[in-house]
Design a protein around this nucleic acid. Structure first.
Lengths: 126, 126, 126, 126
DNA sequence: GTGGTCTAGACCACG
DNA sequence: GTGGTCTAGACCACC
């Protein structure tokens, strides 16, 4: 069972997109693997403090994308093969990296300053 | 005059928040300084391809936050002192850094891998 | 024993309401009379291709309405007296008629056209 | 502009389906013709006493079906050609008639009784 | 003002 | 318990 304890709200990004992001990142990290059961809509919504419907929307989009399967009355399961895993990995890594670099450049940081910033906050705990 | 040529969409974030974010990053970068004139609402909306009302909303929130002043009939000007500049800087840098670190950790990257990723995409142009 | 072979879906109406409706129409038609045994929950659910819980819900509501009695371990029986029968009859006939008339009027039919339409489809078998 | 004063709630049928039905029946009746403007989401929702979102859903499905077109900021318009009009007409007339006949037969009415019922309630006003 | 979308809460059908 | 859907309310972007 996947745990969602690290999840926190972020900016103005819609919650359901954040949930999708979180799951995809877990897939990339290898903490979510083929056959894993997702937490139920109710449980996850309770943990995140959001409406079950918001989780439902995220799960639905993941299902449409072919990353999970849902059957009424049964838990939703992650279904991954080599190809989809690679696709998710490339999309997300590149997307995140590009966005991060753009943000730092807009703030006028040099590459060295960016690395220093990363280093500074890496072990920062909230 | 501030130029907005680099503007690009960011996930599901509302457009007016993206505009605010872009301006704040420019302030941090030093490309926007105290006394600068903001482009007119109609010009900026034309450049960004969005509705003038949307720009208006962003400017209004920046004004409420005390970062710009608008005189009716005249251009809007950026108003910065040491204190507000530092506040904006810390808010944004910290917020971005925390978000970046969380994303990379969720993907299971080590600090070294994160730095390598940053390095790889830094000079990447789209 | 009541038979349910004609049962078909009706728009977006919840299934348990359709079951209730079907039984009430049978009561009006006289095919279901005082003292009749209802089919068991599992048999009816098998015949209709729905979940036993759904049938259970319909029976429960009919029981609350006083139209049937259930003894644990025994079959459910229909309980009708003159008064309840008349009430059911009037409610349903009137409800259906009003709805039918409204539908036909909304489609711009005259009374004669409505009767003609009824006549045309009365002996129509699917 | 189409008026919705005759609209009333019906059974367990979802509200958005009722709205769709109402509009389609108006099309059949000829009271709604090609090029007509639909009432805005807010206005109609106020008249019907439902949430704007419910109307939105009905309009969206009608748009997907090709019966209306919507542009953000402008009113939604009905778009009809001979072919779609005929399709709507046949679908609805047949569907309504079949359902009406089935309901009446389930209640054990003869054709004559059905016609009499129709006649009785035709001039009935609520 | 307009339409579009996100979040929320309740209910239905299923195991 | 599970997932699916309908209704509700608020906000965003556009005219």
């Amino acid at each position: 069972m996947i745990s969602f304890d690290m999840f926190t709200a972020t900016d103005g990004m819609p919650i359901y997109l954040q949930i999708i992001l979180y799951i995809k990142r877990g897939i990339i990290a290898g903490t979510i693997v083929d056959g894993d059961e997702l937490p139920s809509r109710r449980m996850l919504s309770a943990v995140l403090g959001v409406n079950p419907n918001t989780v439902q929307k995220a799960y639905k989009m993941l299902e449409d994308e072919g990353l999970i399967v849902s059957h009424s009355g049964a838990k939703s399961c992650v279904v991954l093969n080599e190809q989809t895993l690679r696709r998710v990995r490339e999309d997300l890594l590149e997307g995140d990296a590009v966005q991060i670099v753009r943000a730092m450049k807009q703030m006028g940081l040099s590459k060295a300053e960016a690395v220093a910033l990363l280093d500074k906050y890496w072990d920062w705990e909230e």
